[in-house]
């Protein structure tokens, strides 16, 4: 009997799991490559780390309630079956949640932590043994967690792709698509939070996030394209299944809402926002020529131009556009999972 077994709880979980993985990835990457004298980079790493554990924990709760028996979820951890993506995934999720919580704890400001343990009621005083400073472990945790976060992001796609009876899913490209969609969702969520809350920084100080997101969205785009080319050159069952998004029930949501509004439009917005970083030599040329005749001098003036708050307006980087692009990316991330979960289950070998 043909039924759609995995529905919105699974869609939400796939998105939230990917979002956490993306947040951790971006935070860890920033922590590993940031300069010590750049407070904005440290801020990105801190906010990413503090946000990362929660979406995946919420997602896992949703997963548990999707089971036939929520109270039997522990049975997933009495077995390890390497052939089952779900078994590997459950263990990977636990590992990831553990690492990301520890990493987040390492980013809690010292004062806040001390205050928390100070205020504990008498009966919970024993918890003070956890009042340790994990901050020196940030970098080792970032290194250890990077492959785990990539694993969590990829596995959500492998979970679907490893099913040979659903031709819509049965390609490695689904895992790659979910990976880059997850990483870009993490980036976008950080941009959103920073744009709405971190008023002490200018948006251009978060340009590394834009660059990462543009890269992830570009990669995502160039995975969707071969997904269709390869699918159309594949066996009949795959071609048949692609009709679900090429004239079938998911056509509009895929092409207009995911590809158009959730991928290409935010990509364009973000490219427009970061374009001055690459086009400065055009805009700044007259001033540079006036200031310094040498090439070395020109590059210095570009750098000072970038770090000077007065030039922020010329460099676009508006909070409004940042919020718009980030929201579109996040909506796209939900939609692509919705489309794949539902369309995949509707596809079959005839």
């Amino acid at each position: 009997m043909k039924t759609i077994e995995w529905q919105y709880l699974i869609v939400s979980y796939l998105f939230l799991g990917g979002l956490s993985a993306g947040l951790y990835f971006v935070s860890a990457l920033t922590e590993l490559f940031r300069k010590d004298d750049d407070p904005a980079q440290e801020h990105i790493a801190r906010i990413g780390a503090l946000l990362a554990p929660w979406p995946v924990m919420l997602g896992c709760t949703l997963l548990v309630f999707d089971l036939g028996h929520w109270y039997r979820a522990y049975k997933l951890f009495l077995h390890f079956r390497w052939e089952s993506p779900m078994s590997i995934g459950s263990w990977l999720l636990m590992l990831f949640i553990g690492i990301s919580l520890l990493y987040a704890y390492g980013w809690v400001p010292r004062g806040g932590r001390e205050h928390f343990y100070e205020k504990l009621p008498r009966r919970l005083r024993f918890l003070r043994m956890f009042n340790v400073d994990v901050a020196p472990w940030r970098r080792p945790l970032a290194i250890a967690g990077l492959p785990v976060s990539v694993g969590v992001a990829i596995y959500t796609g492998v979970l679907l792709g490893a099913v040979q009876s659903r031709p819509f899913w049965n390609t490695n490209l689904v895992a790659q698509l979910f990976l880059f969609s997850a990483l870009s969702a993490g980036c976008a969520f950080l941009i959103l939070v920073l744009a709405m809350r971190s008023r002490e920084f200018e948006m251009y100080q978060f340009r590394s996030l834009y660059l990462l997101d543009v890269s992830f969205l570009t990669l995502e785009f160039f995975i969707v394209v071969p997904y269709f080319i390869h699918g159309e050159l594949s066996v009949e069952a795959v071609r048949e299944s692609l009709k679900l998004v090429l004239g079938g029930p998911f056509t509009v949501v895929f092409w207009v809402f995911f590809m158009g509004l959730g991928l290409v439009l935010p990509w364009a917005i973000e490219v427009r926002e970061v374009a001055p970083l690459f086009l400065t030599h055009v805009q700044l040329l007259p001033r540079m020529r006036a200031a310094t005749p040498t090439l070395a001098g020109a590059s210095v003036s570009v750098v000072s131009e970038l770090s000077a708050p007065t030039s922020a307006k010329k460099l676009h980087f508006s909070r409004g556009w940042a919020v718009a692009a980030a929201v579109l990316v996040l909506v796209g991330g939900v939609l692509v999972r919705y489309i794949f979960v539902f369309a995949g289950q509707m596809s079959a070998i005839r």
Binding site: M1, K2, T3, E5, W6, D66, L67, G68, H69, R72, A73, K75, L76, S84, M86, L159, V163, Q164, S165, R166, Q345, A348, I349
Partner: peptide, 27 residues
């Protein structure tokens, strides 16, 4: 007694030969 009701098997079956017992929470 080992089935958690995740229904991954139903999705994996090319013949759609499985069904979910909502009353028992198992496949």
């Amino acid at each position: 007694s080992e089935c958690v009701g995740c229904r991954y098997c139903m999705i994996a079956c090319p013949y759609d030969a499985r069904f979910f017992r909502e009353d028992l929470g198992v496949v």
